[in-house]
């Protein structure tokens, strides 16, 4: 049944997937197996997104299914051991900008690719990034921004991280509507990612995963 579940999720058959999860829970299946199947399906979703067969509707539906399955499993979930993660990524939309769709997609893709992600939300001032680097200890920081004003606040954020003496601890990537290599240079970040998969590849390269 878990093979069936993997396919149902990966092929976007939401109703079938949720039915299967309920049946498996009622039949006394190990929640770890259900989660394992879900993760395997998310890997396939990620691969199909990377290959250009899946787009936002599929990523968003996959995210929904993940939440719905977690809701069904909730009582069981507490007993589970922590999943082994490749590394930690801190992410947020920089100060002055309140756009979050791109950031949420990158967060989701990092999560399904095995990263522990701390999302600071939108309109995040530089000092919040500095505090979170201190407390969360990420290897990678992702700065998101949709508007041109983000060029300057990204630069200020990188400067604040440098001033706090944290620049050598983290790799910094930027992404969003009007970003590019020239803006990477301008802000002092380490790399620019064109889309969510580029962000995942950068993070994987930097933490030595895969």
């Amino acid at each position: 049944m878990s093979k069936q579940l993997v396919n149902a999720i990966a092929d976007m058959n939401e109703a079938e997937a949720l039915d299967l999860v309920r049946q498996m829970v009622e039949g006394g299946s190990d929640p770890t197996a259900i989660l394992e199947a879900t993760r395997e399906a998310m890997d396939i979703v990620g691969q199909r997104y990377e290959a250009g067969t899946y787009y936002l509707p599929e990523l968003m539906l996959a995210g929904e299914m993940l939440n719905e399955i977690a809701d069904i499993l909730k009582p069981e979930l507490a007993k589970l051991p922590e999943v082994k993660r490749h590394g930690k990524v801190l992410i947020g939309t920089v100060e002055g900008d309140i756009h979050d769709i791109g950031k949420n997609i990158v967060t989701f893709m990092l999560d399904v690719n095995g990263f522990e992600v701390l999302d600071l939300g939108v309109d995040v001032p530089p000092h919040k990034f500095v505090e979170a680097i201190r407390d969360f200890q990420p290897q990678v920081v992702g700065l998101s921004g949709f508007l041109t004003l983000a060029f300057d606040t990204m630069k200020e954020t990188v400067e604040a991280i440098t001033t706090a003496g944290q620049r050598d601890q983290v790799k910094i990537m930027i992404g969003g509507g009007q970003m590019g290599e020239d803006i990477k240079e301008y802000t002092g970040a380490d790399a620019y990612g064109r889309d969510a998969m580029a962000g995942v590849s950068l993070a994987q390269k930097w933490v030595g995963a895969k």
Binding site: T148, F151, Q178, M179, G180, D182, I183, E185, Y186
Partner: peptide, 9 residues
């Protein structure tokens, strides 16, 4: 003409 070029070019 890209906004990034108009901003930092």
């Amino acid at each position: 003409v890209p906004l990034s070029l108009l901003s930092v070019g």
